[in-house]
Amino acid sequence: MAILGLYNNLNTYLIIGALLFAMGIYGIVARRTFIAMLIAAEMILAGAALNFMAFNRFTAPDPTTGQIFTLFIMAIAAAEAAIGLSIVIAIYRQYNSIDAEDVVELKG
């Protein structure tokens, strides 16, 4: 059964990474709360990291590079989540809402 051999195929991982990325884009465009957008951004980063790991396993000559890069992506994601959530909390104090539609003070 060919479907059971999918785990040994580069394209499988690339397509899953593309799907994660697309779900993240959908989340960022369609959701309206800041926290939901942040969750979608984390999914975009996860899709990118999965791509790095797939190329690292199947094509890269040095299989440590992709793993180290993925570790760095995780660190950046952690920093991004910390900063983003603190901004969300500051916005909530100011506006009493985390809806992106309510934070429009600069809108003309």
């Binding site: 580069l10 394209n11 690339l14 397509i15 990474g17 593309a18 799907l19 990325f21 697309a22 779900m23 884009i25 959908y26 465009v29 369609a30 190329f55 690292n56 199947f58 094509t59 890269a60 000559p61 040095d62 299989p63 440590t64 793993q67």
Partner: peptide, 30 residues
Amino acid sequence: AFATAALLAGGFSLLALNTDWPVRQKINDG
């Protein structure tokens, strides 16, 4: 939003399927 996401996913998947990725010799075991 769904159309954007579907376009992106389809485009990336087609790109992945239609590219011949070169495979090189591993220099360590990772």
